[in-house]
Write a protein that binds this DNA or RNA. Structure first.
Lengths: 340, 340
DNA sequence: GTGCTTGCTTGTAACGTTTCAATTCTTATA
DNA sequence: TATAAGAATTGAAACGTTACAAGCAAGCAC
């Protein structure tokens, strides 16, 4: 069994309280005693028991990070920002990967609650969920990641999805594209709703009926993007010259499908992605994309959350909104035969 | 403050012990009582306090996962395998990203020790470290990930790096390449040592002196690969027709450097990577690579570790070794002017 | 009626910390 | 020399849970 403070106390010939003082308030204990205790700690390989500390203190220095897909480099970058900010503040992070599954999300939230984490960073898989409102009613601080807080009593750090989607549309439109397909993810993902809204707003009155088509992929992954696009190409009527994908993974998958169908990017179809993950630049056709400040997103959210944890009374909920940025690469070109 | 069992007991008009029984041994409490208690639990939103449980039980159901770079899709895949296996067994995972930094690794190991995690999965940044041997002397179970246990009293799950590197060399050799550059990472990373060994073994006696050159990148990232290769191309004397990179990220970076220098892949230089991350297939030039069973690696290691945690006495340390696999894509071609 | 089971329920100790009031020991001051 | 003040140390309580010995009815066999 691991050594406890009691063992240390015995070894150093002092009382339990003195050991605790050496650890937490070294300045109030006499130098000789202090050294004796420190030696005993070293000899026994003593490490404080965080559970006991937590139980006593009623609070932890652990955060929960709940993301829908850690396989997506977007979230990996976000997670790095979170990790760095947490580590710097002496917090540790429990990573929870929900696979876009609400049931798994619920189980993880329950687990985080039982761990009495100080706070939770979450990109909800679906619209704000019962389990989450239940959580905010307790003393757990919550910060929404990559998602604006609507109706929920919490901080949020997000990127303007509607604006980004608008940028993507404008870019394609300005290249002369008038027949555009938009490959989205599941309709109930908040980001998807926003990006669809952004496209619709930007397109309003500028395209003929039926010239803007939406396709839905069941997941936000490259594999799902590829199969959805393959299916679409098989069934589609009418033509299109540009494709906007709701994230880069979908775009990479879709490009594979386009090539398999004998179409060349960008000659036959221009493709624009979203997120600007690292690999977008090294892709088969370097991908035009909408860059999101991923690392900053995670970092800022974590600092906000820790701020709330450390001083809940003076904390006012904030909504931070970053702006996305268009990165033009080789996957988008002016349309070959512009139509009116 | 969150409700405790005592509150539940009071609300349901029973004793503390009965509440505990309803939660842990529901079959031994009378149906009426059981329902009353369950209702109270629901009403108060009670969730057990994991710290108190841990303190009492002396053990947690938490694992630590320590990796050098979560930004590398290789480790992301491994982490998914870990997460799935852990979740299935009712464990949760604290993810620790060390950035290949031994000091950060030490701090994380200390943290995991204070959390009294049941076990630790680790891909050590450097050769087996003092902190780790210190840990094994306690009751924490350790499993080495992607790294064979040499001298350390622990389980390990790895992929045969020397064999994989040999495959890569053989592939290039069989395509007629006789002037080969190997882009490795830091010399003190165990995988690098093994892969260098594999190349040397495979090359033994088959190449002229100076026809096999090693270059060292300071990090295993695309950015580092790009700058190291740029530098090498500037300074190099002599020519080469093939490049073997110690992982796919380095390869993607190196390809960018080659293109910037006016070289075409695979016409001027064949490139082979290592890991076969998802993006290798969608890369600018689809990358020939050595596939490692990433997900299985994480999954198998976690099951092994949990096995040890649940029943330490009957546990015998194992070394599991997976075999890698050559995946040929477009980045490697037969040499244009084969030399003898 | 006595003694036994059986089925439920209860009270208490223990896990390892931290905090804080109480205590002891020094040393300086009147 | 007696006393106050200050410095260093101690002991006990509390955090929330679980396990377990003990208690208490109610039902049954004799």
């Amino acid at each position: 069994m691991t050594a406890s403070m009691k063992d240390v106390a015995q070894a150093a010939g002092v009382s339990l309280g003195t050991v605790s003082n050496v650890i937490n308030h070294p300045e109030i204990v006499a130098e000789g005693t202090r050294n004796r205790v420190r030696q005993a700690i070293k000899d026994l390989g003593f490490v404080v028991n965080a559970s006991a500390q937590t139980l006593r203190a009623g609070r932890t220095r652990v955060l929960g990070l709940v993301v829908p897909d850690i396989g997506n480099p977007f979230f990996t970058e976000v997670a790095k920002g979170v990790d760095d900010a947490a580590f710097a503040a002496g917090y540790s992070v429990i990573l929870c990967n929900t696979d876009e599954d609400s049931a798994k999300e619920d189980r993880y939230l329950e687990l985080l609650a039982s761990q009495r984490v100080a706070g939770i960073l979450i990109t909800p898989a679906r619209e704000t969920h019962a389990a989450m409102t239940r959580l905010t009613s307790r003393e757990v601080a919550i910060t929404l990641l990559d998602r604006s807080s609507t109706g929920l009593d919490a901080c949020s750090v997000a990127v303007d999805d509607a604006a980004g989607a608008g940028m993507a549309f404008d870019h394609l439109y300005s290249l002369g594209h008038r027949h555009i397909v938009v490959l989205l993810g599941p309709d109930d993902i908040p980001q998807i709703i926003e990006r669809r809204r952004g496209v619709n707003a930007a397109a309003a009155g500028r395209l003929d009926d039926g010239s803007l088509r939406f396709v839905t992929s069941p997941h936000m992954t490259a594999a799902a993007g590829e199969s959805t696009m393959t299916q679409f190409l098989k069934e589609q009527k009418g033509t299109f010259t540009a494709l906007f994908c709701a994230n880069d993974l979908l775009a990479l998958g879709a490009i594979r499908a386009l090539r398999a169908a004998g179409l060349t990017v960008p000659r036959d179809v221009s493709v624009i992605g979203y997120d600007d993950i690292d690999f977008a630049a090294s892709a088969q056709i370097p991908l035009t994309s909408i860059r999101q400040p991923k690392y900053q997103l995670g970092h800022a959210a974590t600092e906000l959350l820790i701020g709330e944890c450390e001083d809940p009374s003076s904390h006012a909920h904030q909504r931070v909104m970053f702006q996305p940025q268009l990165i033009v690469r080789e996957s988008t070109k002016a349309v070959r035969k512009p139509r009116k």
